[in-house]
Amino acid sequence: MKTIAVLLLLACVGIKSSAQSYDDFTTQNESRLRISFIGHGTLMFDWNGKIIHIDPWSALANYDTLPKADYVFVTHHHGDHLDSVALSKVFTLDTKIYWSKTCSKQSRFKANAFIVANSDTTETPDFSFIAVPAYNIVNKRNNGMPFHPRGEGNGYIFIFDNLRVYVAGDTEDIPEMKSFGSIDIAFLPVNLPYTMSPEMFKSAVLMLKPKIVYPYHTGKTNLNDLIDLLSGIKSTEIRIRSLQ
């Protein structure tokens, strides 16, 4: 487990920046996955030269300066996740987009766009992935509707050789997490009232048992609270990046 001092020294990503901080991972086949931390719920993967944009959002980065997408994944239809401006910047005629039915209805992008639903497993030419549930149970709007209703959005478990990377999307610590199987790297949102409380975050970690967890979509959450809550879980390393 890294110390708090080390965690707080990690590089930050600025708004509209073209330079991104990243972590590299190597699989059992000596392939490299680079994860770049754009901010909020937005990530970019470089898997053996294939570029995967996740929830690209033009408020966070200058997408004119970032690589075009081989793949785009959108977790749900809210504007900080489904952004047509960012999509237009990374899209090419060869880009494949994966998203929910609700996203498809709300976007003008139709070519090479594929609807995936909770529990769908998909093989691409470069990797496989599983779409998994992402929803609220506790946190709701004033009208009683969850901020993220069940079945409306997706999380994604990416399988890169032996490396399994879970990007949760906007969700709480839902019971389905118990059945997700082994997770090497997890991105979990913690941002009340829309996603998880710090206590829910810990509950999710205990269900998933990831080797590494990144809090993301963190808003104004006190990240030291997360570090303290996970201090007794020696099997999981918490890594703090600039993902407000």
Score class of each variant (00 low, 15 high):
Asn29Cys: 01
Ser21His: 14
Thr26Pro: 05
Leu9Glu: 13
Gly14Asn: 15
Ala11Lys: 10
Ala11Met: 01
Ser18Asn: 12
Asn29Asp: 04
Thr3Val: 09
Val13Trp: 04
Arg34Thr: 03
Cys12Ile: 01
Leu10Asn: 11
Val6Asp: 12
Tyr22Ala: 09
Ile4Ser: 01
Leu7Pro: 11
Ala5Gln: 11
Leu8His: 05
Ser18Gly: 08
Cys12Gln: 08
Phe25His: 07
Ile15Glu: 03
Leu10Asp: 08
Ile15Trp: 10
Ser31Val: 00
Leu9Met: 12
Ser31Asp: 10
Ser18Ala: 12
Ile35Arg: 03
Ile15Phe: 08
Phe25Pro: 03
Val13Asn: 15
Leu8Ile: 00
Thr27Leu: 04
Leu33Cys: 05
Ile4Gln: 01
Thr26Asp: 02
Ala19Glu: 15
Thr3Ser: 13
Gly14Met: 12
Thr3Ile: 10
Glu30Ser: 10
Ser17His: 06
Thr27Ile: 02
Leu33His: 02
Arg34Met: 03
Ala11Gly: 10
Leu7Thr: 12
Lys16His: 04
Lys16Leu: 08
Ile4Glu: 00
Gly14Val: 11
Ser31Trp: 02
Leu8Trp: 09
Ala5Trp: 07
Thr3Leu: 07
Leu9Gln: 13
Leu10Ile: 00
Cys12Trp: 06
Leu33Ala: 04
Asn29Glu: 03
Ala11Arg: 08
Ile35Asn: 01
Leu7Ser: 14
Thr27Ser: 07
Ser18His: 12
Asn29Trp: 00
Leu7His: 11
Ala5Met: 09
Thr3Tyr: 07
Ser21Thr: 15
Ser31Gly: 01
Ala5Lys: 14
Thr3Lys: 11
Ala5Leu: 13
Asp24Met: 15
Asp23Phe: 08
Asn29Thr: 01
Val13Pro: 07
Cys12Tyr: 02
Thr27Asp: 05
Leu10His: 08
Ser21Glu: 15
Gly14Tyr: 14
Ile35Thr: 03
Asn29Val: 00
Ser18Val: 09
Gln28Trp: 09
Ala5Pro: 04
Ser18Cys: 11
Gln20Phe: 14
Lys16Met: 06
Leu9Cys: 10
Glu30Lys: 07
Ala11Trp: 00
Ser17Leu: 06
